[in-house]
Amino acid sequence: MKGPKEIFANPRLCTACKTCEIACAVEHSKTKSLYSALAERPQPKRRLYVEPAKTGLNIPILCRHCEDAPCMHACITGAISKTQAGVVITDQDRCIGCWTCVMVCPFGVIGRHLETQKAYRCDRCPDREVPACVSACPTKALIYKEAEDFSRDRRVVVATEMFTKE
């Protein structure tokens, strides 16, 4: 049985337009529409971050929903757990905003909501068929696939490249 679909990023296709960041914030707003989300308070927050890797190369970075999530073990109040669907979530009632998870996350993708004093991260858009960022990416740099399929696609590309290089 395949694992859950995950969000992968191809830095070669990323133009750093940041449409994904906006789509994420809009999806996590109350009204879920750009124009009305602008007026909401507290302001909606994006869960993924487009960062420069080096000149000309950018990459959207977001929660990997690690199998053995360091944040989950490090959380001093037991607020972080992994759902059946494989998504790591922070229980907003239990979170006390100590930010230990922020500190141990090797990817730096846990956000601090300074108004509510809670930690938040990518939730893989449970209300959508396809996460908002993936749908929004104009260059298809974000991919929503099971890890097995993603690896297989990569293998196919590699195999073809190996063959045509002759």
């Binding site: 449409t19 789509a23 809009v26 879920k32 529409s33 750009l34 908002a132 749908s135 929004a136």
Partner: peptide
């Protein structure tokens, strides 16, 4: 097709 942010909007 997967609904994009703007498509939601366009649909509306």
């Amino acid at each position: 097709r997967p609904i994009s942010m703007k498509e939601d909007f366009a649909m509306s």
